Computed example of a mutant assay.
Amino acid sequence: IQVTVDQFCGRYLQKKIIAVSEELAHKLQVDYPKQHITVIENGVDLEALKDVKADAPFLLHEPKVKVKHVGIVGRLVPVKRVDIFLDMASELVNSESTDQVLKFHVIGDGPLRLQLEKRAEQLGLSDAVTFHGHIKNVASYIKSLDVLVMCSDHEGLPMTLLESMALGTPIVSHNAGAVTESFEQGEGGVLSEEHEASSYASALYKLLTSDSKVLPAKPNSALDNAQAIIALYREISL
């Protein structure tokens, strides 16, 4: 009933629906008129992120000169697929060809935490993976990482991804929607060919060992996002 009412309002009562990416806009066209949909990408506070320092506590114990730090950020729920992240970590830790010292960080909390901690223990990752729980100043943790992994089943245009791009932390992702084209050009991050642990492991290893660096990518600012929404409100109120 809720979905039906929501779709009715979107079709007949709402003047506009905001999609945060072109990919999401195409999906919304299945249920809503094309002329109702406007794309306004998410934005982040670039000025605030410019002053963020890479000072997560784990760097005090294991500086980047000795260890490569790889993390995943998000609520610990099924769609985020932290299980894939752990399987990827297990493959890399147990690989004879990997000469890197790797530490993995799960940043966030949620209903699957105990289950995921048990899975990490079963995979023999107790010394390699740290569950940090909810972190208030998550930007400092993102900047302290060498690579951020995003292996969700689906995303729109996640703020964590945009923050990582603004902070200069490379990303490994799969089908990242609005930023896929940038990733294919080597800007902001790289794409895993398949949505499975071995493919993420391969993409991550290449990123960590390659001489070529990921080019910086600048996401939209929160100010641009706000101005676009204000302009849309003015347009539909005329």
Rank of each mutant, 00 (worst) to 15 (best):
K118Y: 15
T209A: 06
R75W: 01
T38K: 11
L167M: 01
E163Y: 01
H69L: 10
L114Q: 12
G110H: 05
L148Q: 05
L208Y: 11
L161W: 08
Y12T: 00
N175F: 15
E163R: 01
G43C: 06
L28D: 00
Y205T: 02
K80D: 13
K15I: 05
I1G: 14
Q29A: 05
K213F: 09
G108L: 12
V73Y: 04
V20F: 11
V67K: 14
A197D: 08
L59E: 07
V93S: 02
H36R: 05
S90Y: 14
Y141F: 08
L167F: 03
L157I: 13
G186F: 08
L157C: 13
V79P: 05
H26I: 00
N94F: 07
V5D: 00
S192T: 11
K206S: 13
L114I: 12
K27C: 10
L24C: 01
Y12W: 06
M159W: 05
S173Q: 09
E181F: 13
P219K: 02
T130F: 08
L145M: 09
G156T: 09
K64F: 05
K53C: 15
L167N: 04
V147C: 11
E117P: 06
K27T: 09
L49I: 05
V77R: 04
A48R: 12
D109E: 09
